[in-house]
């Protein structure tokens, strides 16, 4: 029969138990620490082997890195070009406005009323008004070096009629494709009907340039699609080539791999160096491609700036240099690691 012990186990027993627990916990901690150290050690060794492999097959390495470099350059160029084109079209669109002409005698109050009506349209981004006098000043200002024009002006002034230029409201739109609301107000609003200068049609800056710009945008879309398509194609090609490089490396080291397996190397140790090797292709290619890409930008952007809008892209590329470089490295790493993983999975059966 067991004795009942209402006060629980004796203190000494509890202390012994606690000590044992503490000891076990300590041992566990030590084991974890040991495991961690081992993993780090294995990782460094795998890296070292990968580096060694990388430098061993110089020609394969060069070929694989070159293809990867081209791929990354194409991606770089595509992204930069599409940014440039987008920027150009955006800038052009921003310059476009609808100019509505009003009779010269339209008062400032009326103009303010008209402006107010336009402002409430959600698609309108800005409205700029200038009355007849302002327009006159602008015309004088713009043509002060034009002798014939100035003479004509003074002649008109001396004839007593003066120069009657129409008042103008310039309207800019957020979405240049959607101008229905503005058209609606111009044609149907009573105040507009009353004051609009029927001799001069509303200048359809938007409509005229819109067509050109739309065509440009279409071309850009195609170009962009071609660019991204080429980038995608080259990504696939470089994955295939690196896949093949790694496959050849695996075949040429078949005996070595078998030996490593025979003496107890695990998957990490056998596969790791190949992955490191392929990832190195990616990193080096990224560094080369980034350097070449930036050199090309520095070379060509200033002269391109005469034809297209480069400011924003240039600023971005300079300000975010490190981010761009990191992104390139990341893409290189991903491509390298995907292809190596595929090759290793296919040709390095456990």
């Amino acid at each position: 029969m067991k004795k009942l012990n209402p006060s629980g186990p004796p203190k000494a027993e509890i202390a012994a138990k606690n000590a044992a627990k503490a000891k076990a916990a300590k041992a566990h901690k030590q084991r974890l620490e040991h495991d961690r150290r081992r993993r780090t050690l294995t990782r460094t060794r795998v890296m070292r082997y990968g580096l060694r492999n990388f430098s061993r097959n110089m020609w394969l390495t060069v070929a694989a890195t070159a293809v990867m470099t081209i791929t990354l350059l194409i991606i770089f160029a595509t992204v930069v070009a599409s940014s440039l084109l987008n920027e150009t079209i955006k800038a052009q669109r921003q310059k476009m406005d609808i100019s509505i002409y009003f009779r010269a005698e339209t008062s400032d109050d009326t103009l303010r009323n008209l402006t107010g009506k336009l402002r409430v349209i959600p698609n309108v981004s800005s409205v700029n008004t200038s009355n007849s006098d302002d327009e006159y000043k602008k015309a004088v200002d713009a043509n002060k070096h034009d002798q014939a024009y100035m003479e004509a002006l003074s002649l008109a002034a001396s004839s007593g009629q003066g120069m009657q230029l129409p008042a103008v409201i310039h309207v800019k739109l957020h979405d240049t494709d959607d101008r229905a609301a503005v058209d609606e107000i111009i044609t149907n609003d009573a105040l507009f009907k009353e004051w609009i200068d029927h001799a001069r049609a509303t200048s359809d800056d938007v409509q005229i340039r819109q067509n050109t710009l739309n065509r440009l945008a279409d071309i850009m879309n195609v170009a962009q699609r071609v660019g991204f398509g080429a980038a995608g194609l080259f990504v696939v090609i470089s994955i295939l080539i690196i896949f093949n490089t790694i496959r050849m490396a695996i075949f040429s080291r078949r005996e070595e791999i078998d030996m490593m397996k025979a003496i107890g190397a695990d998957q990490r140790f056998i596969r790791g160096p190949f992955l490191v090797e392929a990832e190195l292709y990616g990193v080096i290619a990224a560094l080369v491609a980034t350097t070449l890409g930036y050199l090309a930008l520095m070379q060509f952007l200033p002269s391109l700036g005469r034809y297209i809008e480069v400011g924003y892209t240039q600023e971005f590329m300079i300000q975010w240099f490190w981010l761009v470089a990191l992104a390139m490295i990341a893409i290189g790493l991903v491509i390298g690691s995907i292809s190596a993983r595929l090759a290793v999975r296919r040709y390095l059966k456990p």
């Binding site: 397996k261 025979a262 003496i263 107890g264 190397a265 998957q267 456990p350």
Partner: peptide, 13 residues
Amino acid sequence: DRDIPLLRRKIGV
């Protein structure tokens, strides 16, 4: 299967 390497480390070949 994952422990095969561990086994092989216990046997010298």
